[in-house]
């Protein structure tokens, strides 16, 4: 689980079937002292995290596959929670 900042979104009409219907948000991983760390990654979003909100992004495929109810889904990053 990595803390990240929502910095945008991505639109894809041609993706793995298990991703259909999920919003894809660009998340900037935050490292030490909340400084940006590396390039932004794409995570699927269920909670409607708003732009520039701080979130926890999971990097575990097992949880993601349960989330999308598809054991064949290659998804890995999904937003687990929005930090107040």
């Amino acid at each position: 689980m990595i803390p990240a900042l929502v910095v945008g979104h991505a639109v894809s009409s041609h993706s793995h079937p298990s991703l259909k219907g999920f919003k894809m948000l660009l998340c900037q991983p935050l490292g030490f002292e909340g400084k940006p760390d590396g390039s932004p990654i794409v995570a699927i979003d269920l909670f409607g995290a708003g732009l520039h909100s701080k979130v926890f992004v999971s990097t575990d495929g097992v949880g993601a596959r349960h989330l999308v109810h598809d054991q064949k889904s290659p998804i890995r990053n999904f937003i687990q929670g929005v930090i107040d």
């Binding site: 900042l5 910095v7 945008g8 979104h9 991505a10 639109v11 894809s12 009409s13 041609h14 993706s15 793995h16 991703l19 894809m24 660009l26 900037q28 940006p36 932004p40 794409v42 732009l51 520039h52 290659p74 998804i75």
Partner: peptide, 12 residues
């Protein structure tokens, strides 16, 4: 896993 049609990047 995805081919992107558009990306919107707005860092604070």
């Amino acid at each position: 896993v995805a081919i992107f049609d558009s990306l919107k990047y707005e860092p604070p």
